[in-house]
Amino acid sequence: MALDRIRVQWERHDERFAPVRGDRFASVLYDDGAWLEGPAWSPAWRTVLFSDIPNDRVLSWDEATGAVGVWRSPGGYANGRTVDRAGRMLQCEHGSRSVTRTEPDGTVTVLADRWAGKRFNSPNDLVEHSDGSVWFTDPTYGIQSDYEGFAAESETAGSHVYRRDPDGAVTRVADDFAGPNGLAFSADERTLYVSDTERAHLRRFDVAPDGTLSGGEVLATCDAGAWDGVRLDTAGRIWGAAADGLHVLDPDGTLLGKLLLPETCSNLAFGGAKRNVLFVTATHLLLSIRVTATGLR
């Protein structure tokens, strides 16, 4: 059962936002986190997994019962995650400075923990390509202190974006970020969007068939803090978590509208049977908001 509801203020900035509607109140599914992150919907389990990073645990919310339980503790100071096309859970872990995959039997496989022999900083968020490659960001948030991981020095001379191919090869695909964070592909996978939280930018890259990136222009600048996690819907709109709630942008970068919330939002995921329920991590809260938009997987 939801614990409570909080008001969602819908704010239209462009007439193209008119078709997007939804709940006027967000359901509070959980309210006892320190800094929640990385919601991911599992259709098979009908659950949302999400991270309580400072408390080093991964929690699960069950759709059938409304119960929240501990999925893994200690949780590797995990941050972002996604469910791959085989239904396995992929996640970024600050503690082990790696990207891992949880197999159906519960065993954990390390997909990547180094590039060119150097340990990653603290992988933050990730997305799977249809060719089986896993793309992820690697800022330094998990090694800056002991709050979200373990304080350590960076070995990679900066914060970058990487691609891990199905054969295990890891390639650095972008190296000019200050704080790469959330990322998402367009429906045709020809475009990759990446938020640069330190600069409050959302950047757009062209993706070549061989997986190389070009372009990288700044598509938009956040007007409320900075964008963290980002997701796309089937209409190509970009949904970004920000300090004042969720921002919705057109693919051309225009701010279409906002879903204003009282807490800083870190991330979001579309889920539910119709993929029209937004699961949002907002500081200490896990929220759900049903909308008229349908999320990409």
Rank of each mutant, 00 (worst) to 15 (best):
E63R: 08
D56K: 01
S42M: 03
G38Q: 06
E93F: 03
A40Q: 09
V110A: 00
T109Q: 04
Q91G: 13
G75W: 01
E15P: 04
E37L: 07
H94I: 11
A78S: 15
M89A: 12
S27M: 09
V20Q: 02
N79G: 12
P74C: 05
D32W: 08
S96N: 11
R72E: 07
G33R: 12
G106W: 01
H13F: 12
A40F: 01
F25Q: 03
W35D: 14
S98L: 00
V83I: 15
E37C: 10
D23M: 03
E15K: 11
R85F: 12
D23G: 05
G33Y: 14
S51N: 11
N79T: 15
R46C: 05
T102W: 06
T100L: 11
L49V: 10
A34F: 11
A112Y: 01
T47I: 02
Y30K: 04
G22C: 08
H94W: 04
P104N: 00
E15F: 01
V99K: 11
S51A: 15
E103G: 05
Q91R: 10
E15L: 09
V68Y: 00
W35E: 13
P43S: 14
F25R: 10
R21W: 01
D56I: 04
T102L: 13
S60H: 06
D105L: 11
T47V: 06
A64W: 07
V68P: 03
G87C: 13
R46I: 02
H94A: 07
A64H: 01
D52K: 14
L49G: 09
A18P: 00
A67W: 03
R97P: 13
G66K: 09
C92G: 03
V28M: 03
G69R: 07
E93D: 13
L49H: 04
D84Y: 11
L49M: 08
